[in-house]
Amino acid sequence: MAAAALRLAGVSVGYSGRPVVTGVDLELRPGQRLALVGPNGAGKSTLIKSVLGLAEIIDGSATVLDRAPAHARAFTGYVPQTGNLDPDFPVSARQVVMMGRYRRLGWWRPARAADRRAVTEALDRVGLADRAGLRFGLLSGGQRQRVLLARAIAAQPRLLLLDEPFNGVDAVSQEAIVRVLRDLSAAGTALVISTHDLAVARDLADLVCLVNGRQWAVGTPGETLTAGPLRQTYGSSAIDLADGRMVLVEP
């Protein structure tokens, strides 16, 4: 069996020694899709940052492709939330995707035909080849998310982490993103997707990790996205309906 794409054993992560998420135990193999599910503020982003070596591993051991997180960045990709980016920033969609090639380009080397081809291909895969020249901020929220996904693809990562990729994303973009993610995992890329959308998690993930301050459950969607673990994870935000079903409300 190939080496694990991600292995977290008894991991606590946080900032300046203060844990945000504790007790995370999971293993992700190449080509597997992991959904991090939990309410807002559960620590999903912090957990993702720790895999990128940007948040502190306070306890336990974390290995990314058999390396320490900070030493695996050449093989990991990251798709941030678009909401954090300035829509007025004067860059085109193409320039944003080219940023995915910067690591290969290094400081000096000008972009070559191969780099430009990779950028065009990545934009094509997310269905935005015709928008390449447009300023990033002029695209819709869903399209911006797809551009950021294209940027990650252009770097050809072996482990790709996406922070709430479906937040504020229209149906067309969501469909495009899901299709690309399925293709990527079929080609062997391991995926970590944080979301608070249970339908997306059920539909897309092989493995679900329920987090809210700590890991509450990990397993297949069938094992985890059930009343018991969800009630534990969401606490008072989980409301039982009379017919045995349950709704989750954001506090």
């Binding site: 940052k49 990128l52 941030p80 954090n84 980016l85 860059v91 940023m99 910067y102």
Partner: peptide, 9 residues
């Protein structure tokens, strides 16, 4: 443009 993305890279 994207400090978190740059750090992640």
């Amino acid at each position: 443009f994207d400090p978190a993305g740059a750090a992640a890279a």
